[in-house]
Simulated scan of single mutants.
Amino acid sequence: MNQTLTNEQLTKELDTITRGLKQQETLKIQSETQLKTLRTQFKKVESEILESGVEPKQAKESLEKLDSEIYELLEEVKQMMSNQESV
């Protein structure tokens, strides 16, 4: 079915398309800005990790090890406190 659009209908359609394109361009710019910010943050954190003497790829492992050590120390302190109370 061939439908002929009036000038007014064409103008409305073009306006809708133009608005959509502008919104998409705005979203693209926002996304690029956010990506740039995240990359900068990543580089900063990576640099800080390297400065602390840990390889970034092994950071998770190192953090898990530190968490385990902290937990063990806390348990020792609790045990000491428990022994202290019973004296």
Score class of each variant (00 low, 15 high):
residue 17 I to N: 01
residue 82 S to A: 14
residue 46 E to G: 02
residue 31 S to A: 14
residue 6 T to F: 05
residue 10 L to M: 13
residue 8 E to D: 11
residue 82 S to G: 09
residue 41 Q to T: 07
residue 34 Q to F: 08
residue 58 Q to P: 00
residue 74 L to P: 00
residue 62 S to C: 06
residue 56 P to T: 07
residue 6 T to N: 08
residue 70 I to R: 06
residue 13 E to T: 09
residue 18 T to N: 11
residue 75 E to I: 08
residue 57 K to D: 12
residue 27 L to E: 15
residue 65 K to Y: 01
residue 34 Q to V: 05
residue 84 Q to L: 15
residue 80 M to T: 10
residue 29 I to L: 06
residue 57 K to R: 15
residue 29 I to C: 00
residue 72 E to V: 14
residue 32 E to F: 08
residue 4 T to I: 15
residue 35 L to F: 09
residue 18 T to I: 05
residue 70 I to D: 07
residue 25 E to H: 07
residue 8 E to F: 10
residue 38 L to C: 02
residue 25 E to A: 11
residue 76 E to L: 13
residue 13 E to H: 05
residue 55 E to L: 14
residue 44 K to M: 09
residue 34 Q to G: 01
residue 7 N to T: 14
residue 62 S to A: 15
residue 15 D to N: 12
residue 75 E to D: 15
residue 29 I to H: 02
residue 10 L to T: 03
residue 18 T to W: 03
residue 59 A to G: 00
residue 24 Q to P: 01
residue 46 E to F: 06
residue 15 D to Q: 08
residue 63 L to S: 07
residue 75 E to V: 11
residue 9 Q to F: 08
residue 37 T to D: 12
residue 10 L to E: 07
residue 65 K to M: 03
residue 57 K to G: 03
residue 28 K to N: 08
residue 39 R to D: 09
residue 72 E to H: 06
residue 53 G to N: 00
residue 61 E to I: 15
residue 50 L to M: 12
residue 57 K to S: 14
residue 49 I to M: 03
